[in-house]
Every structure is written in structure tokens, then in C-alpha cells.
């Protein structure tokens, strides 16, 4: 594999099962939060991860960030297996791979000023002197569009949009390669959302960032991402370049998600939405395909065999027995 085609990040068979114990500490069953997730992330691209709540998006992000440990599987960053590193070495990886929490206000120590929070990553990971660190913090603060006077404020004294900018600034001080964004626009009103998305774009260009963009908001993902992976109950069920996924979704779950996007002048969502019921219990998955209990196209084979992502090597892969033959006629 040449240097050019080597992915920035490669996830292989990531698995995370949470044991559920009864009163006597005996494991009765396991919740499969992540079940055999693999994908590549190329340098400079934005990969969207979408899915319902509880599908394992956040678990995946936190696992890549080193907050959760993987029960099985490997994560390679620029060719190095970071799952087998010592605790000390893994901590140093944080310089290149950063994670932004869903709730940036709570991700800042409430007793620390913004300035101190921004200085912390530099104090840990670099040997810069205090004035050098201050200069760098000042520069980053300007790129995320915050005035320097904010350095002396506390997290609760600034707005949600500003907290997000601080969250971005905090990780950008280290100039990482890969940034995992967990629901970067949730809880913001639409105008602030737009400015944050624009800022994310500008920062990506300025600092040559690669984004893993976790969101449940399909319209945001559509604007932001080069490729999109759709997750369902701990597994990627479809992954494809953005435009293609929206034009010809192959997995019935993706199709139902797309039909759920409200559209001005389009058909009512209640008419086109095909999904029924709740996702299956993650601790008690059905046999065969995990989507079959809600799938409109369920067949006999679905109960027997768990479909794998395919076709291998292709840019557009789906985990459905009928992915090749299902009607690809778009979503509206």
C-alpha cells in the first residue's frame, strides 16, 4: 500500500459489548453497543456517521478517542495500531486525534477560565514556554472567531455557540490530523448551526483537518460529508459517497431514514415513512439480520443469515441480502 492511499484511520472489527449483570453479579446478557465495525477514513475527507439514538455512534466516537476501550478490533492511525500502545503512548496520540463532546459546555471544567482550559492541552503535549502557548492560544481563538477578552470568562458565562467555538479552539491548539465531532450542531438554533458548520468548513481548510462527523441530522450530514456511514444497532449497514447514498440508497434502513427527512413541497413524512416500531433490543438481537424485525422487505433468508457489508472493495457497500437487487429509485 503506497503512502498516498494509506487511510489516515482504519477501524477493523471494533466491538464493544456491555455486560448486563443481575443482583448477584452474574452476567445475564450483553448489550452489543458496537458489533464488528470496520471502515477507512482518508486524509482530508469528512465521513459522516448517522443513525438513530442508541445505535452506537457515540460509543464508536469515544472508542476512537480512547475514552472507551474496544473489546475486540484494531484502530490504525497513520499506519500505527493505536489499540496496542501502552497507556502512556496512547495518551500522546491525543495530539493527532481529537474528540469534541456533544455538550461542549459541560466538557469544560466549570471552575477553570476559558484561557486556562485552552492552555491545558498545550501544557501537556508540548514543551512550549508560557508566552509561546499564549500566542498560540490567541491565534486559535482568532480563527474560531472569539475575542481575546473571553479568555478570562468561565464556561457558564458564554453562550452555547461560543462554548462550541471554545471546544473547537481547545483541540485545535494541538493541530490534530483527525477530529471526531460528536453531534456538533445539536442543541443550537438554526442560525448558530449554520455559522458553526461554516466555521468547521473554514477550519478544515485552514488546518487540513479530517473529520469524523457524528450526527443524527441527515440534512446537516448531507451538506458536510464526503462519505456517509449509516449505523443500525451497533453495526454499519451502509457506507457510500454522500451523493450516491442520497441518490441510490441500497439498504432498506437507509431508505427509510431518507424518507423521514421533511421536505418543503415534498410528500408528507407520515405518508412515506416506512419504519415501524422501535429498534430491536440491543441486548437481545434477532437471529440473522438485525433489521429484519422492522424491514419492509423481509424474506426467509434474513432470519437465517446475518448479511455482511458488500460488495467488498466497492465505494458503496450495504449489509443487506437484497442490496444488489433492491429498487434504487431515490427517496422522494
Amino acid at each position: 500500500m503506497s503512502v498516498d492511499t494509506q487511510p489516515l484511520l482504519r477501524a477493523e472489527g471494533l466491538r464493544r459489548h456491555f455486560p448486563v449483570r443481575n443482583a448477584f453479579g452474574v452476567t445475564t446478557h450483553t448489550i452489543k453497543a458496537l458489533d464488528d465495525v470496520s471502515f477507512d477514513l482518508r486524509s482530508g475527507e469528512t465521513l459522516g456517521i448517522v443513525g438513530e439514538s442508541g445505535c452506537g455512534k457515540t460509543t464508536l466516537g469515544k472508542m476512537l478517542a480512547g475514552i472507551h476501550k474496544a473489546d475486540a478490533g484494531r484502530i490504525h492511525l497513520e499506519g500505527t495500531d493505536i489499540t496496542s500502545l501502552s497507556v502512556e503512548e496512547r495518551r500522546r496520540i491525543a495530539q493527532r486525534l481529537q474528540y469534541i463532546h456533544q455538550d461542549p459546555g459541560n466538557a469544560l471544567d466549570p471552575r477553570w477560565t476559558i484561557g486556562r482550559s485552552l492552555d491545558e492541552p498545550l501544557a501537556i503535549h508540548t514543551a512550549l514556554s508560557r508566552p509561546e502557548r499564549l500566542a498560540r492560544v490567541g491565534k486559535i481563538l482568532a480563527s474560531v472567531g472569539l475575542p481575546e477578552s473571553h479568555l478570562d470568562l468561565y464556561p457558564h458565562e458564554i453562550s452555547g455557540g461560543q462554548q462550541r467555538r471554545v471546544g473547537l479552539a481547545r483541540i485545535l491548539t494541538l493541530q490534530p490530523r483527525l477530529v471526531i465531532l460528536d453531534e456538533p450542531t445539536s442543541g443550537l438554533d438554526v442560525s448558530v448551526q449554520a455559522t458553526i458548520l461554516k466555521l468547521l468548513r473554514a477550519l478544515q481548510a485552514e488546518f487540513q483537518l479530517t473529520y469524523l462527523f457524528i450526527s443524527h441530522d441527515l440534512s446537516v450530514v448531507q451538506i458536510m460529508c464526503d462519505r456517509i456511514a449509516v449505523m443500525y444497532l451497533g453495526r454499519i449497514v451502509e457506507i457510500a459517497p454522500s451523493a450516491e447514498l442520497f441518490a441510490v440508497p441500497r439498504h432498506p434502513y437507509t431508505r427509510s431514514l431518507l424518507s423521514a427527512i421533511p421536505r418543503i413541497g415534498g410528500r408528507r413524512v407520515t405518508d412515506t415513512f416506512t419504519l415501524e416500531g422501535e429498534p430491536a433490543d440491543a441486548s437481545n438481537l434477532p437471529s440473522g439480520c438485525r433489521f429484519r424485525s422492522r424491514c419492509p422487505q423481509v424474506a426467509a433468508v434474513c432470519a437465517k443469515q446475518d448479511p455482511a457489508l458488500g460488495p467488498g472493495g466497492s465505494a458503496h457497500q450495504a449489509a443487506c441480502h437484497f442490496a444488489g437487487e433492491t429498487p434504487g429509485g431515490g427517496h422522494v
Partner: peptide, 26 residues
Amino acid sequence: RETFIEAAIALGVPPRRIVLQHVLPN
């Protein structure tokens, strides 16, 4: 379980520093 402690872990802050500078003051 607070987010800011998790964020510090993700940032690669060594545990001793997290305990003394983030946990203890709180």
C-alpha cells in the same frame, strides 16, 4: 462521569493531573 473529566481523558491529560487539577478543586 462528568463530561469535562471525560474530555480531559480524551485530551490525553495524565490521570494524576486530572485528579489533582480537575477533580480535587471540584
